[in-house]
């Protein structure tokens, strides 16, 4: 692996359908509502292998709903979600096997040790024992948590728990990594570590990453950004592209402008 062409990371073009490699994540015309409340309306975008994509939106923009649909916590009723070509509703096993997820809420089992948590996840993906043990060593080393392997996760700090969750999400070697507000509650150092680590994964392994956040300063100057507001996509492109389109000097200004103008006026 790792031989993914990254030429389009800065300016993602629409992926040609005829290409043999499907986009890591392809969402077309996705809408969702809870009763009469519309959470997502006609959302479409793609994430390619090697893309680091920031899904930027305020709290309540629909990010968590989008993640719940992509991970098939809820089924979507309209639109399409494909993970490397596998539709989540038609072939959930293939789609879920290729994605790693870091949930917004902490999801480690605090009564279990770090390695027990990782083993549990590996078992849920059906990994053989030997593979599991090798990956535990490898993934914990990558997030610099090898020495905490046998500690109960309850004893870890918030930032350390997040690192274990990233290690866990990568245990089954997914090709698409979804993170939902992964830095909430972390200090500056913890946030930096996480951001750099995930960007490195993206760069070195060609991992496709969708990073949802409401924190604009997590958007790097070279990132690709999707702005989600009130269930709608208001902008999709690289930071320079969005700035150019909005005529703003910074992504923060562009975001403010988009959100102001993007209010549904009808």
């Amino acid at each position: 692996m790792g031989s993914v062409d990254r030429k389009d990371i800065l300016a993602p073009q629409p992926t040609a359908v005829s290409e043999s490699v499907s986009p890591a994540l392809e969402i077309v015309g996705l809408s969702h509502s809870y009763g009469s409340r519309t959470a997502l309306s006609d959302v479409s975008f793609t994430v390619s292998p090697g893309d680091f994509t920031v899904l930027l939106g305020l709290n309540g923009a629909g990010k968590s709903t989008l993640y719940a649909l992509i991970t098939r916590l809820y089924a979507h009723r309209s639109g399409t979600i494909r993970v490397f070509g596998a539709a989540i509703d038609r072939d959930p096993a293939t789609a879920l096997a290729r994605m790693g997820i870091v949930f917004q809420q902490p999801t480690l089992d605090l009564d279990l040790s770090v390695e027990q948590n990782l083993r549990y996840h590996a078992a849920l993906h059906g990994l053989p024992r030997a593979v599991t043990e090798a990956r535990i060593v490898e993934e914990l080393a990558r997030v610099e948590m090898s020495d905490r392997r046998r500690d109960k996760t309850r004893q870890l700090s918030g930032g350390q728990r997040r690192r274990v969750e990233i290690a866990r999400a990568l245990m089954h070697r997914p090709r698409l990594l979804l993170l939902d507000e992964p830095t909430v509650g972390l200090d500056v150092a913890g946030r930096q570590f996480l951001l750099q680590h995930v960007r490195k994964l993206c760069r070195d392994q060609g991992l496709a990453v969708l990073w949802a956040t409401h924190l604009i300063d997590e958007v790097g100057d070279d990132a690709r950004v999707i702005v989600l507001h009130k269930g709608k996509i208001l902008a999709d492109g690289s930071v320079p592209e969005i700035n150019a389109a909005q005529g703003t000097p910074s992504i923060r200004a562009a975001f403010d402008r988009l959100v102001q103008h993007g209010e549904p006026s009808q």
Partner: peptide, 17 residues
């Protein structure tokens, strides 16, 4: 708490989980 999602996002079918 959300940790149920870890179980439910396994690629195995939900009835089996």
């Amino acid at each position: 708490m959300g940790s149920m999602r870890v179980l439910l996002t396994s690629p195995l079918p939900r009835w089996y989980l």
